[in-house]
Nucleic acid binder design. Structure first.
Lengths: 349, 349
DNA sequence: GTGAAAGCGCTAACAA
DNA sequence: TTGTTAGCGCTTTCAC
């Protein structure tokens, strides 16, 4: 706890005095603006180092009258997780107005790389400070991201990473680990039973879904060889489609003792259980805590839900983009999105 | 996303102009200072409402030259969770220096109400804005908290609540729910096995431990009648003591298939498993993710860990105390501390 | 290349 | 009871 710092923090005035230059020059050096002799720059930097100066961002922004403009690009589609995410963006946007920060939200056709890169390309570079992208990674998307970066726009990938693009960072959970977690819970909850496990996925294009499946298979194969994991059912996050596909798959499987719903579109799954009357309900593990999955948990239809906090996701995205724009450091621990595990007992609220 | 607001936010100057008063008067009204006629107050408030004014906190703090002073009171004792908490306080303190916020940390004898209230009473009221208290609730502690509140100091309870005191809010998990979660996991992981479950607790004085036990018993009795929950082993968060008590309890139990370690002092538990060589390892559920419990999880000594994020805890405490001091609203969703469930698959890092 | 001075939105002496 | 004014730490014209 002890601090050896002088109590009064040094200011630009102190730097100016020590370096024997004017405030304007200090500012120029501080912000890397041209038009200062090298010797002067050195003098100022020396003073900064000597005094242990740290810039007061609040004061700087006040003086600048700076307004941050961030845009979120989300897939279209009315699934519960997306609604949650958008609600959080709206809520934060409201609170951030007093902090000179504007949030905007764009929706593009889901699982459609062209639509996504078109949307990114349509962004007016001049009045945007950062872009948060939730969508599939393809060459055209990579190019669009590269264009943003070339123009100094902060870019983060949201929920699903774009690892080979130039995005500044990824805001979301480690989806492979999330899949592993689901598998561990599935295996443990099944407690030695044998049988088949059905996996519901969204799209093979979606990196998050793919990674979850990877992690799930890995742990199932390693730790629970008595359980047979069936091929994925591609539900495209579409409740109707899922509800249609499910009965067929369940029948074909033979002895399905577990269902892992690794994507969105839980509504279809829930409705299936409402209409069917199964002798022995399989263990169900799903993703994302939403009003729908909460109810399913409470009623015992879902046994566990793996989730990521939507509020944290958007707050984190904004913090990271702002830090990136201001060339300020971030706190990695604070920005790490946790893989939340919910049983009916630990649901928040 | 659409906003109907005028782009240029109204400032105190606008209010002054519209209300036809001076800046000083506006400021007085804004800050509820006395010495303004009722009619004038009304005029100003009218203008504020009409313009939809929201105060720029950054500018206000800049002008005030305000420095927040917050103190954390933690129990003494070198257990891993406390170290984690203190490390987070130190880390945040460092980052907060540039935001005019000072954090201090006091340690008082654990499980000792008198020491705690003495420590609270010793706080210099004049130079403290808020106090975060982690300790047992007793009449003397309640009185000490009341004294703080009388002097306008913000008070939050940390980790364990002081519900009948006048603390402004509680920063920590719902410990009853945490206990319930532990029980659900225990029962599910045991998958129908019968036998006994040992509960390790810290102190009967510690509200958090008590509440966890309550929740644990509730769910075990309701959902897993085949499992017999034994009386608590009071380990006082002391690894040595725990290591001594454990073998006896295990032997006495007969057929212990599960251990719920509801408090700190996991080191003793881990050491016990290192020395003993059990035929069939019981399912172990512990609290708080620390370097020690991470390793135990990774090695399969612990099966699950219920936790609360130490970083979140202290950031939240600071945000809440600051908001309280500034009479500003908080975002309850952001301040809600989650009950984290960790398996070896979803450990962060 | 460098500096003087005004101003961002707000607060706090000090006058009146 | 109210207003005038200087100033928080930083940026930014506009001169020199």
């Amino acid at each position: 706890m002890k601090t050896g710092t002088t109590l009064a923090n040094p200011t630009v005035n102190d730097i100016a005095r020590v370096a024997e230059v004017s405030l304007a020059t200090v500012d120029r050096v501080l912000n890397g603006r041209p038009g200062v002799r090298k010797v002067t720059v050195d003098k100022v930097n020396q003073a900064i180092a000597d005094l242990g100066y740290v810039r007061d961002t609040a004061a700087a922004n006040l003086a600048r009258g700076r307004v941050y403009e961030f845009v979120f690009i989300l897939p279209e589609g009315r699934n519960e997780f997306l609604s949650l995410l958008e609600a959080q963006i709206d809520a934060l946007a409201d609170g951030l107005k007093r902090e000179r920060t504007q949030l905007r939200c764009i929706r593009v056709a889901a699982f459609d790389p062209v639509a996504l890169s078109d949307a990114i390309d349509a962004i007016e570079l001049s009045d945007v400070d950062g872009v948060a992208v939730f969508g599939p990674e393809t060459p055209s998307v990579r190019d669009s991201v590269a264009r943003l970066k070339r123009h100094g726009v902060a870019v983060v990938s949201l929920v699903a990473d774009l690892p080979s693009s130039e995005r500044d960072s990824y805001i979301g959970v480690d989806n492979v680990a999330a899949g592993r977690t689901a598998a561990q819970l599935m295996g443990r909850f099944l407690g030695g039973r044998r049988g088949q496990v059905l996996v519901l996925t969204g799209s093979m294009l979606a990196r998050d879904h793919l990674e979850r499946r990877l992690g799930f298979d890995e742990v199932m194969a390693r730790d629970f060889p008595a359980l047979e994991v069936l091929a994925s059912l591609e539900g495209r996050d579409d409740p109707e489609l899922i509800q249609r596909l499910l009965p067929r798959a369940m029948a074909a499987g033979g002895d399905v003792v577990g269902i892992y719903s690794s994507a969105a579109g839980n509504a279809g799954l829930v409705r299936y259980f409402e209409t069917q009357c199964l002798a022995k309900k399989p263990v169900v593990i799903a993703h994302e805590l939403t009003p729908l999955s909460r109810e399913a948990l409470a009623k015992g239809v879902f046994d566990a839900v793996i989730s990521q906090d939507a509020g944290h996701l958007v707050r984190s995205a904004v913090r990271v983009m702002r830090a990136q724009r201001d060339a300020l450091p971030i706190n990695p621990a604070q920005e790490r999105i946790r893989i939340d595990v919910y049983l009916k007992e630990n649901m928040p609220e």
